[in-house]
Design a protein around this nucleic acid. Structure first.
Lengths: 140, 140
DNA sequence: GCTAGAATCTCTAGCCACTAGAGGATCAAG
DNA sequence: CTTGATCCTCTAGTGGCTAGAGATTCTAGC
């Protein structure tokens, strides 16, 4: 277990520059180096990077991941805080889905109404140009 | 109709710095200036900015908006291209919705299974730490 | 005409989470 | 000992803005 960064990347699915970036922002610790100044990693980093990757895939922000990582280091603590981070993230995801759904509806309607003729008759252009009182006006 | 930038902002819902930014990236033209070097706008810019805002609200990228704007200037052209931009954007929105829904499912399950006890028993932390063969692994 | 305060100007830097590329050093296999 | 893959650091770029500094200009009231 003395992996170079490329091997760590292969095993975790996190790209090499991203690993270095995570080190830079302090999301993972700086590992030991070879005599020739190359990073060498162990099992700890595989786990940590996998954790980070899963959390990113679930859409957690880096700052939240920082907190979740800190919690995972304190197994006896209450998981109330982890729960609340996840909860509020779920709400955020719900908001995004709802917004996209409304948007999708408008898009689909617009496309549907397009008669595939000339620009001057096109609902797509028309809707964009003059859209004074539709739902999307109130999308944040 | 010789509006200062703040008034244009008020009428279109696009913030002042954003208007200047749009000018900088060439999304809108540089307007005439007063003797004191302040921008003054007319009806054209109101329409154009409204178009841009609507398109942004619908999630179109700036480069696509550029194309849509160019099309709207050629009323006799076919709207095939506008249609295809909108179509592919719709597909992209569908992809995003689907991705968020899968993600939401995982999040909700995770939270649901959390016993609200200690970190060492917490499904949230556990799922993140060891998540080897779940759907989210294959989310791009 | 004068003054105060609101609005405007330019410019730089920051946001997020990376990604790309230059230019050079190091490693492992043959 | 050479070759080619991998690694290093550093800077800059992505998208679509947003924030702030410090200076100027406009406008309304007196």
């Amino acid at each position: 277990m003395n992996l170079p960064i490329g091997e760590l990347a292969r095993r975790t699915g996190v790209k090499v520059p991203t690993i270095r970036f995570y080190e830079q922002i302090g999301l993972i610790a700086a590992p030991p180096r070879t005599e020739g100044n190359q990073r060498r990693y162990g099992k700890t980093e595989i786990d940590r990077l996998n954790f980070i990757r899963h959390a990113r895939e679930l859409g957690f922000e880096v700052d939240h991941i920082r907190e979740l990582l800190a919690m995972s280091q304190e197994p006896q603590a209450s998981c109330h805080q982890a729960d609340s981070i996840a909860q509020s993230h779920l709400l955020e995801v719900d908001r995004r889905i709802e917004k996209l759904r409304r948007l999708r509806g408008e898009l689909a309607r617009m496309i549907d109404e397009c008669g595939h003729g000339r620009i001057c008759d096109c609902r797509i252009i028309e809707v964009l140009a003059d859209h004074g009182h539709c739902a999307a006006d109130h999308v944040a």
